[in-house]
Computed example of a mutant assay.
Amino acid sequence: MILVTGSILACEDAFDDVLRSCLEHVERSRKEPGCISHDVHVDCQNPMRLFFFEQWADEAALRAHFAVEGTKAFIKSLKGRIVETSGTKIYRAEAIRR
């Protein structure tokens, strides 16, 4: 299993639209082959930051996810509506268990 984390900091005036886009992205992603879970959470210390936590069956499923047109469109839609991104971090669950 592959674990993915990341966060974005939304512009205050665009937060509602960014959150809506994130929720749509999560719902679409959950239907993709190999998606075990895909969630977005509002940071309780900084309510403009949205945190993603994803679980994928394997690397092939994750690569396919990033290649889906919907994912590309989601990423492109954030331009100009977010202040920063933490960058995506990818972990192999097997390595974490050790």
Rank of each mutant, 00 (worst) to 15 (best):
I2L: 15
L3E: 00
T5L: 09
G6H: 02
I8G: 06
C11K: 13
E12T: 05
E12G: 02
D13Q: 12
F15W: 08
D17S: 09
V18D: 07
L19I: 05
L19V: 07
R20E: 11
C22R: 00
C22K: 00
L23R: 15
E24V: 14
E24G: 04
E24A: 15
V26E: 05
V26C: 15
V26A: 15
E27K: 11
R28I: 02
R28C: 01
S29M: 05
S29N: 00
E32N: 02
E32Q: 13
G34W: 01
G34A: 09
C35R: 00
C35Y: 01
C35L: 01
S37V: 12
S37I: 04
H41I: 09
D43I: 04
D43Y: 06
C44G: 02
P47H: 06
M48S: 12
R49E: 14
F51H: 12
F51W: 06
F53L: 13
F53V: 14
E54G: 08
A57C: 04
A57Y: 00
A57N: 02
D58G: 01
D58F: 08
A61G: 15
R63K: 13
R63I: 09
A64D: 10
H65A: 07
H65W: 11
F66C: 08
F66I: 00
V68P: 01
V68Q: 15
V68Y: 12
G70Q: 10
T71M: 11
T71G: 02
K72R: 15
A73W: 06
A73T: 11
A73L: 13
F74N: 08
F74K: 08
I75T: 10
I75N: 14
K76Y: 12
K76C: 09
K79I: 07
G80A: 11
I82D: 04
S86P: 04
S86R: 06
S86H: 01
G87P: 03
K89E: 11
K89P: 02
I90K: 13
Y91R: 06
R92Q: 06
E94Y: 02
E94I: 01
A95M: 06
R98S: 13
